[in-house]
């Protein structure tokens, strides 16, 4: 289990993440949603070990994160940040191979091939990473991250993704979330920051709503998806509609009627 208890982080006395507690079990997808500036990315960095919390603790499978070496941490969790720049002319294959830098696997070549296939990037493997389009880059980075945890292991592992679908078209967005679903069967817990509420509603098992550094609501998809809560969190009118074809829930964010108020709020 990935467990965060009372995690706290502030910049100049202003709390960015305020006493947040959250649990992620292997085999489930937890979507973290919230408006800009809610503290999602900071919370994400606290979980990944990039920054250390002022107080509170993060534990992986019962091990305190501060006591794990970078190498041990990499064996139980993989991280996909929002943007990754590569400054030198590395090929796609070379970038993806880097995911294996601190793990030993039996058949690296086969594993990389499988991941490239799954992320629909095998045709790009000999190209220079920097020459790819935004969406292609994002898929290659996903491949690099997946390589790190692709081989099945006897202990639970975790995958953290910060907006992995931000540059992808609709088909690719769904393709990525489908890959995440298949990972559940590998005893992997997935935490994903998403902007698209409907993607979260369709694929996540649990949702946590973050606002002003606090968890506004967390629970199963049914528990969290309520118009009132969503309207409070996003400061925007939201309607839940039943999808006439699939019967699932559709989240509609209609334009605010009859308001002359500018909708940009300070983050």
């Amino acid at each position: 289990m990935l467990q965060a208890s009372n995690v706290h982080f502030c910049i100049r006395q202003r709390p960015i993440v305020d006493e947040v507690s959250l649990e992620l079990n292997p085999g489930e997808i937890l979507a973290v949603l919230g408006p800009n500036g809610a503290g999602k990315s900071t919370f994400f960095k606290l979980l990944s070990g990039e920054i250390k919390c002022k107080h509170g603790s993060v534990g992986y499978n019962g091990h305190e994160i501060n006591k794990l070496k970078a190498r041990d941490l990499a064996a139980v969790r993989a991280v996909m940040p929002q943007h990754t720049q590569v400054n030198f002319p590395f090929t796609v294959q070379e970038v993806v191979e880097l995911g294996l830098i601190s793990t030993r696997v039996k058949q690296p070549a086969k594993l990389i091939e499988e991941v490239l296939e799954a992320t629909n990037t095998s045709h790009l493997k000999d190209q220079i990473f920097n020459n790819l389009s935004g969406g292609e880059k994002q898929r290659v980075q996903l491949a690099r991250v997946l390589v790190q945890i692709w081989e099945t292991k006897p202990f639970p592992r975790y995958l953290l993704l910060d907006e992995p679908t931000s540059s992808l078209d609709i088909a690719q967005q769904h393709a990525v979330l489908k890959i995440l679903q298949t990972l559940k069967a590998r005893n992997i817990g997935i935490l994903v920051i998403l902007h698209e509420l409907n993607l979260a509603a369709q694929y996540a098992d649990k949702i946590a709503l973050l606002k002003n550094g606090l968890i506004a609501k967390s629970g199963t998809v049914e528990e969290v998806l309520e118009e009132k809560i969503l309207e409070y969190v996003f400061d925007h009118p939201i309607q839940l509609i039943q999808n006439p074809v699939t019967g699932g829930v559709l989240i509609s964010a209609a334009a605010q009627a009859n308001t002359s108020q500018p909708s940009f709020k300070q983050a």
């Binding site: 190498r71 940040p81 400054n87 590395f90 880097l98 601190s102 690099r144």
Partner: peptide, 21 residues
């Protein structure tokens, strides 16, 4: 050399992949 390859993606990314940056 392998650690340098990882650093080319960024220090945070290298840390995520298990490099003691």
């Amino acid at each position: 050399s392998r650690q340098l390859n990882a650093l080319a993606l960024g220090e945070q990314e290298a840390f995520h992949m298990g490099v003691n940056v």
